[in-house]
Each structure stands twice: as C-alpha cells, then as structure tokens.
Write a protein that binds this DNA or RNA. Sequence first.
DNA 1: CCCTGATTCGC
DNA 2: GCGAATCAGG
Length: 156
Amino acid sequence: MDWSAEAIEQLRALWAEGHSTAEIGRRMGISKNAVVGKAHRLHLPARPSPIQREQAAAASAAPRPIAAVAPVAAPAPRPVMPVAPRPPAPAMRAAPPAVVRPFPRSGARTCCWPIGEPGTPEFRFCTSESFAGKPYCLEHASIAYVKARDRREDAA
DNA sequence: CCCTGATTCGC
DNA sequence: GCGAATCAGG
C-alpha cells in the first residue's frame, strides 16, 4: 500500500466517520489489517475493541479491592463523537471536479461527489449523507476541501 | 462461522 | 513502516 497523503486523508476521514476497519479496507481496496495497522501507527483514536489482553482483562477480573474507599468518578462513557471537523475556514476553498451538481437531486442532503466517469453507466454520485451542510460527506469533504497551502504544493 | 479491533513480529 | 497472523470477544 502506498500511503500517499491522499490515502492517509481518506483513511482518516473514513475512520472518523466510524466505519469498521474491514469496511474501510473494502473501500480503499486494502485489507482491514492494513487499515488497523496504519490507523494504529497514525495514532488514530482507538475504537472500543472486543478484545483485551492482560491490562483490561486483569482490570475487569480485578474484584475492586478498595471499593469502599473509592467512590470513583464516572469513567467517561465515550459516546464516540463524529469527530471535530477541520474548519472549512475562508482560507480553504473547494477544489472538487469542475462539474458538481449537474442537476438538483430533490434537495437531498447527500454527498454530491461524483463517482466514476461522467457519461458512463457506472457514473453516479456518492450517496453518503452530506457533512455539516456542505455538499459532500465527510469522506469527500476531506478531499474536496484543501488547505490553500496544500493547493499551492499540489499546483506547483 | 460471521463479524469486530488491537497487538505482535517478520519483513 | 508495513500488514498478515494471531488473539479475543460478540
């Protein structure tokens, strides 16, 4: 796997969207192991894992030795937030394919990212729910909205 | 057996 | 750094 900046962006976006590692792998055409391995190396926020070795296992097995002395603060429910988006500030501008929204699709708040080659039978739009009022889902917004600085590099 | 994600370890 | 193998749980 060539972990280009774009690939990493996509991984981050999909991970942030809460897809399973296998699903991300399917979308990116790589194995879930590759996904989880890379996510791990990128220090992406770990998701609740079904397994535990030693640490948590011992913790859950530990019968609360000093319960009486430990009122214990609430241990963070971890609602798995959809993640704080990088702000699409004025410094950013859309850099999507030229043709976006050739026709309005019943005002649905769905991602308008085009998929496939326009004019071909395979051509369609991403159907994910759009993100934060933008015309794209989080995944594609991460590609569509590019920091001005990065754009310069890209164009250079 | 299907799925999940984390860690390990040879490469 | 990478990811298959493996582990451990649902």
